[in-house]
Design a protein around this nucleic acid. Sequence first.
RNA 1: GGAAGGUUGGCAGAGUGGUCGAAUGCGCCGCACUUGAAAUGCGGUAUGCCGCAAGGCAUCGGAGGUUCGAAUCCUCCACCUUCCGCCA
Length: 418
Amino acid sequence: MLDITFIRENPEKVKKGMESKHQDPKIVDKFLRADEDWRAKTTAYDQLKAEQNTLSKELSAGQSENLLSKAQFLKKRLSDIENEQAELKKMRDDLLSRIPNIPFDDVSVGKDESENKVLREVGTKPDFDFTPKDYLTLGEKLGLIDVKKAAEVSGSRFGYILREAALLEFALVKLAMDTLVEKGFIPAVPPVMIKPKVYEGMGRLAADQKEERYYFEKDDVYLVGSSEHTMGPIHMNEVFEESELPRRYVAFSTCFRREAGSYGKDTKGILRVHQFDKVEMFSFAHPEHSEEEHKFLLSCQEELMQKLELPYRVVEICTGDMGWTDARQFDVETWLPGQGSYRETNSCSNTTDFQSRGMNIKYKTKDGEKKLIHMLNATGFAIGRVLIGIIENNQTKEGTVRVPKALQAYVGKEEIGK
RNA sequence: GGAAGGUUGGCAGAGUGGUCGAAUGCGCCGCACUUGAAAUGCGGUAUGCCGCAAGGCAUCGGAGGUUCGAAUCCUCCACCUUCCGCCA
């Protein structure tokens, strides 16, 4: 969540930020009104309660009919005012949860992905002397992907990853882990279920995200959409020493997404599915160094892509296309020759203190002051999408797929389908 | 799924209706002593909210309740520990 004091003092800035993220800026005014109402009620409550506390103290010294009836009257009024206060608080908090993180000043304002800024293109696109096939055609022919059976078993937007593709999954996980652990990232396998209260604190149950989550009513838990969601809370309610920052993790988990509201989009294959596996980087950083840390995470992503020898481009996301919790976001998009376009495979976000406020994660300054840290997350490998990239870029005229050199040792094979 | 015990400040651990935001110890910070350090002594040391401030309010796992007044009594829930059962 955003800092309430900041909203109070900079309502115009927050409105502008919201507008640039396609959120209704009127929420800010509504919030400020609710906030004011709540504060007024709180003051009234506190005063009344102070009166009651004084009375109680007097009563403990010696009781009298007069004092007692006065106290009983106060009790009744307090319970009324308390209910009203709770109601107002709920309204205020609900409005607060509808305010996203606001972009850094220098993030370019744009309406959607068409206005994202391409920072660089890296690697060479394969030059085929035949018409490249798409990954699904190839994958089905080679027995690597089966979405038809998955649909029978589990429904649409699921897939079986089979044979060498399944081996490639673990190869990718191992490559990412090896690369990042060597850099000092702490390897992790986090829980994939999360309590509502914690999820809210991470800003991932906000109104516009809630529909995207799977929820188990009986157990009151959500399935995570990314290991980011349970890695952030790994330090909830903790205070870091400055010297301990940045603290970096590399986590592996399955991710679950309802993909609500994306009905017509990417309906075929495994590009957009309800369940996929992902290696994720997560970093807890000093606020003064989070921009630097953000670049570092991006460089790790690029290093991983380069190890796979996949052509990609780095995109700076404009305000209209940014994530809810982000102040700045980069995407890495992989070239997919079968589609003739770049598609997002990685995302890299600085959420500043938007999540740490909800998680209550701080660091101690030299003066002993406790301040909120910054939290960042970045895709290592989103397995399904990387598989797509490998299959499409490494296909041959014969319909086989070359295994990237960096993965050959893990897979034990140089070419699939030969 | 069954049984028992537990959840208090950074940690350990007192506290069973008002004098308790909370003893004591450890840790941490400051000061004194010391050439320096250790030891010792003195002082300080939870968080959130409202308020310009003075100050006030809230918080002893969570939510309700009883009471003029709850860390303390009652109800429900969550979590943890141990034992039994089941299970990859």
